[in-house]
Design a protein around this nucleic acid. Structure first.
Lengths: 121, 121, 121, 121
DNA sequence: GTGGTCTAGACCACG
DNA sequence: GTGGTCTAGACCACA
């Protein structure tokens, strides 16, 4: 479910956070489903529990999960989180398209690239 | 020409490097034009010369500029650099579009966003 | 009567305790009235009996209820509990008003806020 | 400037964060002023640097400070942070007033308490 | 069992 | 020097 890539320059807690955010916002992990416990995930991934906890903490402050001490962590997708994520990604798409256009890529090529993803995901 | 944004989480040397890369790859800084000297730029931006030096060093290893000891640095846009940049940005575009599609954004909206940049930049 | 809010960061036993304290000190639950049994309440709220037990234990040590083994728990509002609660809340009111004043809220606004509650509760 | 109270049930990082938030939002620490470095403060207070860093990290995500790796942390009071704080405190004031009224405190007494703070702070 | 806090200490990147 | 990440391991409160 979660894969850590040690060649990825991003910190581990960011990789874990982003991966879960994708899974939650895309609906793979539905609301009210249980997250793996901090200890369980940390031993599965061979990562320090503190690192996992930091990822969970940030997911909680983003409104993606709720953590209940003594009971576990649960998916809790908030509209605000979904909207914020959408805004962030849309802006990145716009900026990336702009940079590609600046180095000479045509609009047709851009649109082709965007459509490409459709077959993969 | 170069603007440092202290709210940008990226290190300063990365901001400088990326900004120059855009200017060079997009043709604003044409091949053989002279780069500002390290000392000059560092005093203009009130930034440690080491930081500028590092940005220049990486631009050189990317094939974007050449530094001639004692004479300064010159733009030297290599096809390899342009191609690598293009590949990197295209992949980012594809991935971002995929994520947006995963959270329910339609293809029409994606294409509209991509076209949007056209009027701004 | 009792509502658990899982988004509330406070432990469940604290939520239960505080809610009962309000009900008792405000007179909604009059002296000598019977508290729901631990088992009953724990099954109604789908909460571990230990958690309810702890809330009751603390209410008892605060002088808000008395538990009679084998017969149940009864409301027993002590003047000391009422006074302590009043002191605690008054201090919190004073401190909060002070902080608001520090960030520029006028006395008129403070008083308006305090009066506001009158219509709601 | 910062005082840790080990009898305060709140975690240390919360005490540090809240104390700085007060100082910043009330203008005692003006925008662009330098925060003590993580290491400096941690040794002054005899607290682990990680704990201080967590407080700083949360202040940063609240828009109260900005941390620049290699350069230090700086006050950066955002309007959003001020507004959020004001809303939070106003709600607490309203709720506390409501509870006091519920246990029989008169409006006159409430207003007197609110005015009281004026002479202290 | 769960999540949460804290410490001690290492290492890295940045300036 | 600065902030940031990560680990190992302890301890606590809660259910």
């Amino acid at each position: 479910m979660i894969q850590i890539d040690y060649r990825d320059p991003r910190p581990i807690y960011v990789q874990v956070r982003e991966r879960f955010r994708e899974l939650i916002l895309s609906g793979v992990l539905p609301p009210d489903s249980k997250m793996p416990s901090v200890r369980e995930l940390s031993s599965t991934l061979a990562i320090n529990p503190n690192t996992i906890q930091r990822a969970y903490r940030e997911l909680e402050s983003d409104g993606c999960i709720v953590s209940v001490p003594g009971r576990g962590s649960y998916v809790c997708q908030s509209d605000a989180a979904l909207l914020a994520r959408r805004r962030e990604l849309t802006e990145r798409l716009r900026a990336t398209a702009g940079e590609l256009r600046a180095i000479g890529v045509t609009e047709e090529e851009l649109i082709a690239t965007v459509k490409e993803g459709n077959t993969h995901d």
